[in-house]
Computed example of a mutant assay.
Amino acid sequence: MQKWIITLGLSVAVAACTREAGYEVDQGAFGNATLNNVQVMNGELTYAQILGQRFAAEVPTQINFAFDSAQLDATAQQVLLRQADWIKQFPEARFRVYGHTDAVGSTGYNKALGQRRANAAVAFLTRQGISRSRLEAVVSFGKSRPLIDTPDRDRRNRRTVTEVSGFVDRNPQLLDGKYAEVIYREYVASATRESYIQRGDVSADETGE
């Protein structure tokens, strides 16, 4: 019995040793920067598409509104603050905000209302320090593209959606496929911040104490 237990233990240990290094760390994104560079250079993927996918995956892209209103409530403002923080990380990129409404009301009125909603979102993002030249409030889709197909009031249809649209002055640093450089920039920034904290170099103001 004891011999069997020892043999089983050795088998488990050997099996553990055969696992690939980093298997617990890699969540499926390891090597994406290199893969994306290759796809960009081959014309299979644009950097705008890559950045758009990241934006949609990492922050909420949509905010919602009360009926017949373009006012930003507290929830909408919190979402826009998250968008602003993300947008600031990529000064090379430009963004568009699309306005939408529900089906209640005329086509003309809803198109104007959707535009006011897009304008409100862009104005809020601008107040967070993002250059107006990087933000565009696109002409509203009005009620033509509902999420929920209903003739009634529906908050889910009363929304704006923020998307990556391109780059500032066709920024060459990114359009030549150097997506890995952006990843490296983010990595260095986070590592530098972490090293400051570990050494105790962060001031009381920075830590909030």
Rank of each mutant, 00 (worst) to 15 (best):
G28F: 05
E163K: 14
T107E: 13
V40E: 02
A137E: 13
A204D: 10
G43N: 10
V14P: 03
R94A: 02
A66L: 12
T61C: 11
L45T: 06
E209D: 10
G114F: 11
D152A: 12
E58V: 01
V12D: 03
G108V: 11
D176A: 06
Y196K: 12
S203Y: 09
Q78R: 03
A66C: 04
G108F: 07
E163P: 07
D68Q: 14
V202R: 07
Q2F: 10
S144V: 06
E136V: 14
L10R: 02
T7S: 08
R199V: 01
Q27E: 07
P172F: 00
I130R: 14
L125F: 11
L45W: 06
E194L: 05
G99S: 02
A57Y: 13
A137W: 05
E44C: 05
E206N: 12
T7K: 06
A15F: 12
W86D: 01
I50H: 01
I5Y: 10
N171F: 05
P146C: 04
A103L: 02
G43W: 09
A93S: 06
I50W: 01
L174P: 10
V139A: 15
S11M: 07
N110S: 13
T75N: 06
Q62C: 13
R127Q: 15
Q198N: 10
L135V: 01
E209L: 15
G43I: 05
F124L: 13
F55A: 02
L80G: 13
G129Q: 04
D102N: 08
K111C: 12
A48L: 04
I183F: 03
R134D: 03
K88F: 12
V25N: 08
A56G: 06
Q78L: 03
A191H: 00
R116T: 05
R155K: 15
A204M: 09
F95C: 00
A189C: 10
K143E: 14
N32H: 09
R19W: 09
V138G: 00
T126L: 08
V40T: 02
G108M: 10
A29V: 04
A16G: 14
Y23Q: 04
I87P: 11
D85C: 03
A137C: 10
S131A: 15
P151D: 10
G200T: 08
Y109N: 02
A191T: 01
Y187W: 07
V59W: 06
N110M: 09
W86R: 04
Q115S: 12
P60Q: 12
N42Q: 14
I6A: 12
N42V: 03
I5P: 05
A84K: 00
G22D: 05
P146G: 06
D85V: 00
P172T: 00
Y109F: 01
W4I: 06
K111P: 05
A137G: 12
A57K: 06
L147P: 09
